[in-house]
Structure formats: C-alpha cells, structure tokens
Design a protein around this nucleic acid. Structure first.
Lengths: 182, 182
DNA sequence: GTCGATAGCATCGAGTCGAAACTATTGCAA
DNA sequence: TTGCAATAGTTTCGACTCGATGCTATCGAC
C-alpha cells in the first residue's frame, strides 16, 4: 500500500528529526536535553519554567523536571526561584549553555541547500501545520512576543498589556508562553 | 539574537516530530518502537534486517536489536532467519503490527490543512533537505524501488538488476536500502 | 584453510518516558 | 480567618532507549 503525500510529509518530518537527534550525542547531551536547552535559549523571562518547557515539547512536568536537573548538574543551566511566587522556578543558560545551544549540525547545512525564497515558504507551511496541530488539542503556540495581541509598541522599547510590564527590544523577539497571535 | 529562517525550519521540524512522538504513547509503544514499525511496514523484503532499520533511523545495530526484540515480545513482529545467509534476520509485521502501523495521529490531520498542491511542494522540499542531509555523511537514501537505477520494467512485473531478482508490482512501491536514484 | 569483514546479540550505566503520589505555596471563598 | 482546591515543582517507579563495547556465528576472498 503506497503512502499518500500527507503520510510522506509526516514520515519525512520524523526521519529528519531523528537524524538530527542522532547528531546530538556528539556532545554529552541527548536529544531531550538539547531540545530543552534550545527552547530555553529562545524563550523570554516569563516562559522559562519547567511547566513551560514541558508544554512546549509535549511532555510532562515530571519528566522535564528530571531533564532540567540533569542540565543543571552538567553546568549548562542555573535555577532561580521567583520572588513573587515562591513555587515557581526559572532556568537560565550559563555561558557553556549558550555556546551549546548555538552549536549547529549537519541538518542546518542541508536546509541551506534550498534558496532563501523556498526556505521562507517552507517555514510558513510548517508553521501552518504546527498551528493546526496545536489547535487540535488546545496547545499554546509559544509564538514570538512582538507578534502577540498583547504587544504594545512604545517610544523606545515595548510593553506587554497582559502582564503590564515593560519589555526590552530583545525580549520582543523571544518566545512567550502567553503569546496570542494578533 | 533572533533566529534566521534556516534555524526556524530546523526548530519546526524538531518540534513537530516531538509532538507527534508524544501521541505515540497512547498505544503501548514508544516513539522509537513506532518509528521502527512504520519503517518495516514500508520496506521491501531485502530491507527488513536490524542493520537496515538502524541505518534508516540513524541509530546503532545494538540499540535497534533491542527495540525489535521488544516489538516481537509484544506480538507486532515475527523474526525469520535467511536461508542464504544464516547471519541475517528479516522482521515481518504481524496482523496487529500492520494495524498499529496504519494508526493515524493528530499530525496527519494537521498536515491535511494544506491544499494538495502545497503538500506536494512541501514534500519535495523536505525530500531535498533529506537528500542533502544524507549526502553530507554518506547515508543511503532508502528510496522507493521503482525510482531506482537498478529497476527494470518487464512485461507484467519488474526486475532488480542489482540483485538479479524478479519483483512483484507491490514491491516496486516499497522502500529499499539498496536504492540509487536513477 | 585462514582471516578479516559482516550480522546480530548481550551487557553496562546514564538517562528518558509516563504515571502517580508527594510537598509547598497560592488564592479564593465561606 | 480558616479552609480548601488549584497550581508548581519534585520524587519515585518500572519499562525502555541511548551509545559503547565486546562477543559469537557466519560468510567470502585469498
């Protein structure tokens, strides 16, 4: 029974991710650890708690708790308890953590074979699929801050209307767990 | 530091695969087991040995050996020693195995939001990336039999010029570890 | 017949996986 | 103010994957 296009796309996505994950072992981290580290490298300060990483990657808080603890032991993360809510914890990347998150693999080179226009197009299509996938069972999008309905541009920086907090220019390019596409 | 398009594509591929994998646990199989089962469901009779599955999924023979044994224990596969080469083993799907490989998840539905033309386009782009990725470190393509340089169409069925063996029509639509794009 | 290459397997320690039970904190409401 | 449910994170459990290493059986070329 030959596969239809839809199934082929799913198979390609899974195989590419699997091959990319296999590279990961070159460092002293496994795929789950790299995935968590890369998320934390791109998330803003409101979105770096264990429950956020767990939701982003489709796993449980318990599992993510272990993964994050092991990254702390290896020196790639530090944990910081919140002042306001003493239950919550935020993880920050250390200098080696940032270096590792910026590491690039063979897959990036392979994506580079496509011309810029095609990359742009591909990126949009995959985003559409992700949005549909998340909508199917109420997942959050974790989109970029400045594309959010709560984002307000001010003179110099920006402002979050949901959290009533000022934002630095850098923060507006990061991922946020509260993001709602405008 | 904002991500460029290339990095975004990689991140999207990994996140989609991860979310798809999370669904997998609804059955009594984990992502690695499902991936192996789905490969075996699509591979031809020359490409269903542990070393083939391992190469396809970018893992080692040792690890794959364990995964396949556990699928046998669960009743989704049967193993069969080769007549010609007594070292080699071929795995076949049982009836429950076929049923499980055909199971469809939320991701397929999400891919379905794209119109057919876009799916076709997306499929080609991802294939290009995969080809480039494999070329980067000498991996095999595991392409479809009838697109192979060794494929010869005959009157009724077909013929493999590499293995000097006749092929059924069905076999020419399956994956082959020897495939070389014509 | 020897010997290297190949195919698969067993074992090891670290770590992931979900599930479930647990602690500490928060916030709401009677 | 007390009570209680919701929330955030952790711990423990058993099954399993991960790569690495070393092992056996078989094959094939010389």
């Amino acid at each position: 029974m030959p596969m239809n296009t839809t199934e082929q796309i799913r198979a390609l996505i899974n195989r590419l991710a699997r091959l990319d994950a296999a590279e990961t072992w070159e460092a002293d981290l496994n795929p789950a650890q790299i995935a968590a580290l890369e998320y934390l490298a791109r998330a803003n300060r409101f979105s770096r708690a264990p429950s956020h990483v767990a939701e982003f990657l489709g796993t449980t808080r318990g599992t993510m708790s272990q993964t994050l603890k092991s990254l702390v032991r290896k020196g790639y993360l530090t944990e910081r308890r919140s002042e306001n809510d003493r239950r919550s914890i935020t993880y920050d990347l250390t200098v080696p953590g940032v270096a590792l998150a910026d590491r690039r693999g063979v897959l990036l080179g392979a994506i580079g074979v496509l011309p810029d226009r095609e990359q742009q197009h591909l990126c949009e299509r995959l985003s559409q699929i992700l949005t549909a996938r998340l909508a199917a069972n109420g997942g959050r999008a974790f989109g970029i801050c400045k594309t959010c309905a709560h984002h307000r541009a001010t003179g110099d920086g920006a402002y979050c209307a949901l959290l009533s907090l000022p934002l630095t220019p850098e923060e507006t390019t990061q991922l946020c767990h509260e993001q709602v596409t405008a």
